[in-house]
């Protein structure tokens, strides 16, 4: 997996590309944690090129949402593809995490 990061609004957008599973989650978690810290905890997670997520990947998303909330920041997820959306729905994440359709809909 590859992770692309760039400034966005008052924060940063992080875009994981490929599969977010048990093998890739530890590195992704570290990258996102660092990006949150550097961006004043304002982070948009762009899932447009995320092919697959398992519960190991959801752990990363949950940790990021909690870290951001604890710091009074903003954590938004966008561009969920069908498999990712299904897993978010099965987990109840669609009710506890701010999700928007497109990057342009996100305000950090």
């Amino acid at each position: 997996m590859r992770i692309v990061e760039e400034p966005f609004g008052k924060g940063v957008v992080v875009k994981p590309i490929g599969r977010l599973d048990s093998t890739t989650a530890p590195a992704a978690e570290q990258t996102i944690r660092d990006a949150l810290t550097r961006s004043g905890h304002r982070l948009l997670l762009d899932m447009a090129e995320l092919d697959y997520v398992s519960s190991a990947g959801l752990r990363v998303v949950l940790a990021a949402a909690k870290q951001s909330t604890a710091a009074n920041g903003r954590f938004i997820v966008c561009e969920l593809r069908p498999q990712v959306r299904q897993v978010f729905e099965l987990s109840g994440f669609t009710r506890i995490i701010t999700i928007v359709d497109k990057r342009a809909d996100a305000e950090l």
């Binding site: 398992s54 519960s55 959801l58 752990r59 949950l62 940790a63 949402a65 909690k66 909330t69 897993v87 099965l90 987990s91 109840g92 009710r95 506890i96 995490i97």
Partner: peptide
């Protein structure tokens, strides 16, 4: 899966997927 964000803890989701799917 209905718990609010601050009450959610990691773990258990994998088995939840298996049971549901």
């Amino acid at each position: 899966i209905d718990a609010p964000l601050d009450a959610r803890v990691p773990g258990g989701l994998g088995i939840h997927f298996v049971r549901t799917l």
